[in-house]
Write a protein that binds this DNA or RNA. Structure first.
Lengths: 240, 240
DNA sequence: GAGTGGTCTAGACCACATG
DNA sequence: ATGTGGTCTAGACCACTCG
């Protein structure tokens, strides 16, 4: 199901063409005027598509030259931005399973509500899941889902992707998140639930996720075994 | 020295106003038409400024409502994007020093040239620096700078900021980087140079940095003591 | 219905790169 | 001189929110 916006269609076509190596790395795309004519749109619409290509790391623009295709081979999995465990693992095609070990109603813990400046009596669903890769327990996810939007979370869906459930079934639109990455000493729960091989630390990712209308929907504490953590980023200087 | 583009001026003014709490969190900015009139520009120009505010996490836009100011208090330091150690530490106002322990010419190590698909005989300056925070050695930075652009690196400048030197003195424009974050076992060099307190792992950040014309300029391997590593990210779903 | 942001157009002028 | 991308304009129509 392709997007209906003109600029998104152009973006998707060009991105696909680059993925399929129809443009060589280091070579320019066709010029903005060419593309505008080719797609029968105004130049600004082409530029909107190219802006997205630039932001997603497909191309680099150079005044006077053109839109040069970048080498993307280093993105063997895309983790810049909002991506869930499920989306991530399907790219890597690993044998992964998820075990739900908690799915109950409670209020947002004080530690979190204070941090977010929210009411401490916010009703949430507390989900705890252990992620297995090749039969080893390597990640613990603690999710707190605002009951206001997620009345219940079928355990079957939690084993799959809660994003899928929230977006497809509940019609919610996830929009943005703040994420914080640290490395912290293991807790008792880590030792009980993960196959740690004697590790003393885990990578901890804390994120608060919001909807289009800025409403809070989810807080997640994700604890990763050190050797299974990897984060790839594409960063640009903020001048354009 | 403010930017000369209209949209950047508007961006900067609005960002400053938000920083100074002239708009309350959750409240909308003035409408796009208002702002266009106020600044005497077209609406598209206002929208360009607002797009940047959105991308940098200042606001959230809602069709039919307005541009709502987001809570930014959690960004106690801005690390999303391209930021150097120096820039980072000045924000936190810590007592930091840098000791340069290597500054010599060589060719790009095979491990790196292969990874980047570059010639293995690329001449570089190899810089090794130890970063101290409150008199503790907590970070090792290994930089490989393309001699093509950086003929030499004065040790004095390396103790400060190599970005400053490259951008202000050499007139180079750094544009984008790929970064990869992992956690790895400590090496002999880590043990020799860092105050590890018995840690068995370090956070490793590998990045390849490029100029505006996509040319390679720098490869960095940055090794952080676990407790001194922290990364903050603002992520958006890719639909707009 | 009035006001908001989202998309798109057709045209202008500027800055940069290249032959 | 020509072609490229960068900025900006004035206007149009659509989609959404709210009183």
């Amino acid at each position: 199901m392709a997007s209906q916006n003109k600029f998104m269609k152009i973006y998707e076509e060009l991105a696909q063409a680059i993925d399929e190596k129809k443009y060589r790395v280091g070579e320019p795309l066709r010029s903005e005027n060419d593309l505008a004519e080719q797609y029968n749109v105004s130049r600004e619409t082409v530029r909107k598509a190219l802006r997205r290509l630039r932001e997603t790391g497909y191309i680099q623009k150079q005044q006077g030259k053109g839109s040069i295709v970048l080498d993307q081979t280093r993105f063997d999995f895309p983790v810049s931005g909002l991506t869930s465990f499920k989306e991530l693992m399907t790219v890597k095609a690993k044998a992964t399973t998820t075990k739900v070990i908690r799915n109950e109603e409670q209020v947002l813990p004080l530690e979190i509500s204070k941090r977010l400046g929210m009411r401490s009596d916010t009703p949430v669903i507390h989900l705890t899941r252990v992620r297995f890769i090749d039969d080893e327990a390597v990640i613990i996810d603690d999710d707190y889902l605002a009951k206001e939007f997620v009345a219940e979370m079928p355990t079957k869906r939690a084993e799959d992707s809660i994003y899928d459930y929230m977006e497809k079934d509940l019609g919610l639109t996830i929009d943005f998140a703040h994420k914080q990455y640290t490395v912290e000493p293991v807790t008792l729960e880590d030792q009980q639930l993960l196959d740690l091989h004697g590790d003393t630390h885990v990578v901890v990712v804390r994120s608060d996720v919001h909807l289009e209308n800025t409403a809070f929907i989810q807080y997640t504490i994700s604890r990763h075994r050190l050797d299974k953590f990897r984060f790839v980023d594409f960063a640009r200087r903020q001048n354009k």
